[in-house]
Design a binder for these strands. Structure first.
Lengths: 120, 120
DNA sequence: TGGACAGGTAGGAAATTTCCTACCTATAGT
DNA sequence: ACTATAGGTAGGAAATTTCCTACCTGTCCA
């Protein structure tokens, strides 16, 4: 069935989009500061404008952002629903890291106090 | 401070590791079927052995799997804690997709019933 | 109507990823 | 010791990603 392939391809694009630190930072900026035009975001990155445009294209094709034209600006906006799909992918793993974190906490609790952090 | 860079680099490696459908599938297999030797997992992929080894290396360097030698086999095991860090990255976005999903549900509720799903 | 500005596309170089074949190492069994 | 098996490393081709400079389009404003 082709439907599952399309879903799968969409999932691939979302995970691939998140693989870049630049693109994750863009999502964070849109989350914390709301919709913004390109120049506002691009100013935070040491990168030529077309390179930044390319990152926006990857985010757009993953469905993670949308754009709205206002005059000669394009406001980009966070579209968070695909991130929900990522979380759903993660959910079945949760019990495994909870086990591990619980085990780690037990070990730490059994160590002598060391408020200064003597590691190194 | 170098520490944050190291943390950042670790986060990068985890997200980059998740970008491959093959590697996500490996994590799922280790989750659902427990620790397994390489051949058992590799059999599910149409890929030469060294290519699969390379995927395992990426997962190892991201801290997402560990290996334990038993005879001449190496059992790989899921290490889920880095996935917890992914979930923590995702958490601050949750309220945005919840808004969206709630909005979508309202729209769907306002549509006439269509049990057969008429979308082609 | 002519800049100037926002932001995209085109085309290409360099780096990285993904896959391969060939080969090496370590362990098990005879 | 010899051979087979598990799985890694080496080296390289092809595809993809990431960045660049140059240029184009659309909108605003004088």
């Amino acid at each position: 069935m082709a439907h599952a392939d399309v879903i799968g391809a969409a999932e691939d694009r979302v995970f691939a989009a998140l693989a870049s630190p630049v693109r994750r930072e863009v999502l964070r900026m849109l989350r914390d500061q709301g919709p913004q035009p390109v120049a506002e975001m691009a100013g935070h990155f040491d990168m030529a404008r077309p390179s930044f445009s390319e990152h926006l294209r990857v985010l757009r094709e993953a469905g993670l952002v949308s754009e709205r034209k206002v005059g000669r600006r394009r406001y980009y906006r966070l579209e968070a629903v695909p991130l929900h799909e990522v979380q759903e992918w993660l959910n079945p793993f949760e019990r495994y890291w909870r086990e591990r974190l619980a085990g780690l906490r037990d070990v730490l609790d059994s160590l002598p106090d060391d408020p200064e952090g003597a590691s190194s």
